[in-house]
Amino acid sequence: MQTIFETPKTIKENSRFSFCPGCDHGVAIKLVAQVLDELGLQENTILVASSGCSVNLYDYLELDCIEAPHGRACAVATGIKRAHKVQGKEKFVFTYQGDGDFASIGLGESLHSALRGENITAICINNTNFGMTGGQMGPTSVLGQITSTSPQGRNKETHGFPIKTAEHIALCDGTSFSARVALFDVKNILKAKNAIKKAFEYQKQGLGFSFVEILASCPTNWRLSPLESHNKIENELTKTYPLGIFKDIKND
């Protein structure tokens, strides 16, 4: 008898995710929890949660946690990291944000944390819309995407272009690692886990800002089934948002 899988220890007992059926947030949280377990980080970690669908994260993870005002997670994480450092303690600090939080309202804080080489990790769930408020167009909505505020589809003339967050973060000299991953099949889920692990390890090694953008489904707001949503990511979204590692300080 060998247990191949069990619920990660970092996930609170009797947690019940409040996400819509088939939402990839749950998979991403599970991966984060698994990596924290594997690296033995749970007792030394402080999580910065954000506004959006990920807002209840602290109810699912057995981690010390603070909620940041919308978009300010990387700034709050900076304060936490620095404050412990002056007390002579290295804490593991990461943010878990949506694309609206990280790349729209919080782009300033996000980019500057990367530019400072702030030794924190940011996980950004990119589901190409503002999910919690009912699927409005966000900075990550792709051209042609129909949302509740772009009923005719996003067009570049009126709404401009979507932001390729992982590529932008990779351009910052303080970034140690920047990758975009997806969760539409088992192979990619495992790749995503590896990327999260690498990002976390780079922080442990003090290499600077590490970042993973996770392309995630939003079946409810996309008006698709969970499976169709995954197909959309694989066949459509990856054209705008290619998967891969855009910066790895150890390979550059």
Binding site: R72, V76, G79, A83, G108
Partner: peptide, 17 residues
């Protein structure tokens, strides 16, 4: 900080520590 928004939120994080 890159802005006052960032500064006060860094304070929020640091003080929580």
């Amino acid at each position: 900080a890159e802005s006052e928004l960032a500064a006060i939120n860094m304070a929020l994080g640091a003080a929580s520590s």
